[in-house]
Simulated scan of single mutants.
Amino acid sequence: MTEQLEAMPTDWQRALAIVAHPDDLEYGTAAAIAGWTDERREVSYLLVTRGEAGIDTMDPDKAGPLREKEQRASAAVVGVTSVEFLSHPDGAIEYGPALRKDLAAAIRRHRPELVLTINHHDTWGGNAWNTPDHRAVGRAVLDAAADAGNRWIFPELAAGGLAPWDGVRWVAVAGSPRPTHAVAVSGGVERAIRSLLEHRTYIEALTEEEPESYCRTFIEQMTSHDSARFGDRPCIGFELFPR
């Protein structure tokens, strides 16, 4: 693809990032988030699981709390202090009304203008198959952005004090094989590397490569992937869905 990417909108103040697992945001998106928090924008994280099934050599009862701790430290590196977990089962998230309701409730609580998630498509491009958790959460996020504003969907939320929020203006999908927009991230690359490195226990179980080298290589690859389509600047691409 040779089409140039458009710049992401900047006329917003609050964002909510919703992903399946600890570390999902750190594989690139955190570089954009670092820049946004520098601009004094509010960014909150919502993790659908605690990533308890992500470390083959560690029992889920131990892995879940550890990965939650690493996620909170990782978020702090890029200026995010609001980090919530829903405790859906890692690896077995079910798309459906229950998930949509949980996400709509979170959107009503946080009242974001921008909602972030990661790739909901079947693949990452080509034949690199995406995981069921990513697909389920990404699609539920796109639906919940509308559910949050409809008083007749999940009316029990309003009865419980969560008034409808129809203020979501965009859902931005990171890691999509079909990016439409991008954010320049030259100022956030080093913090993105350090943010990913906070997931040290997970990374050490994932690869035999030295963690610092692994994180730097991955983030530099991610921030250069779409640069030719964005003025040859380090950037993070998003597939943007206006609402």
Rank of each mutant, 00 (worst) to 15 (best):
105 A>Q: 07
144 A>Q: 11
129 W>H: 01
205 A>Q: 13
129 W>C: 00
122 D>A: 14
110 H>K: 08
164 P>T: 11
1 M>Q: 07
27 Y>S: 15
205 A>K: 10
164 P>R: 12
238 F>Q: 04
31 A>C: 15
53 A>I: 00
181 H>K: 05
138 G>S: 07
11 D>T: 09
150 N>C: 02
87 S>E: 10
184 A>S: 10
122 D>Y: 12
182 A>Q: 12
55 I>V: 06
240 L>Y: 02
104 A>R: 13
241 F>A: 05
223 T>G: 02
192 A>R: 12
23 D>N: 08
90 D>G: 07
33 I>N: 15
91 G>V: 01
55 I>P: 00
103 L>S: 04
51 G>S: 03
7 A>P: 04
51 G>C: 06
80 V>Y: 01
27 Y>W: 12
179 P>E: 06
32 A>E: 14
225 H>Q: 14
64 G>M: 14
151 R>C: 03
123 T>Q: 06
168 V>T: 15
33 I>S: 04
4 Q>M: 06
231 G>M: 01
163 A>M: 10
135 R>E: 14
238 F>E: 00
135 R>A: 08
209 E>S: 05
51 G>F: 10
138 G>W: 04
96 G>I: 13
186 S>K: 14
137 V>Y: 04
113 E>N: 13
46 L>S: 11
169 R>M: 01
148 A>C: 06
30 A>Q: 02
65 P>V: 04
65 P>R: 08
228 A>P: 03
213 S>D: 10
167 G>E: 08
176 S>N: 08
141 V>C: 09
218 F>P: 00
36 W>Y: 13
202 Y>A: 06
180 T>I: 12
67 R>I: 04
224 S>H: 15
29 T>L: 10
210 E>W: 11
170 W>H: 15
149 G>M: 08
131 T>C: 07
7 A>E: 11
1 M>D: 11
71 Q>D: 06
73 A>F: 06
115 V>Y: 12
136 A>V: 08
23 D>H: 07
49 T>N: 14
181 H>Y: 08
186 S>Q: 13
207 T>N: 02
187 G>L: 14
10 T>N: 08
92 A>S: 02
35 G>Y: 00
232 D>Y: 09
98 A>G: 12
83 V>N: 02
11 D>F: 04
140 A>T: 07
50 R>Y: 02
28 G>K: 11
14 R>W: 02
153 I>T: 09
173 V>G: 04
140 A>H: 07
95 Y>K: 04
67 R>T: 13
32 A>G: 08
40 R>D: 14
60 P>I: 02
152 W>V: 01
218 F>D: 06
21 H>S: 00
79 G>N: 01
86 L>I: 03
46 L>F: 04
88 H>M: 09
175 G>W: 10
37 T>F: 05
107 I>F: 06
231 G>L: 02
173 V>D: 10
80 V>I: 15
211 P>A: 08
202 Y>F: 15
215 C>D: 01
132 P>C: 01
206 L>I: 01
182 A>M: 15
1 M>Y: 12
216 R>F: 04
59 D>P: 10
124 W>C: 13
202 Y>C: 02
199 H>N: 07
194 R>K: 15
207 T>I: 03
101 K>M: 06
226 D>Q: 01
62 K>V: 13
103 L>I: 13
159 A>E: 11
212 E>P: 00
242 P>N: 02
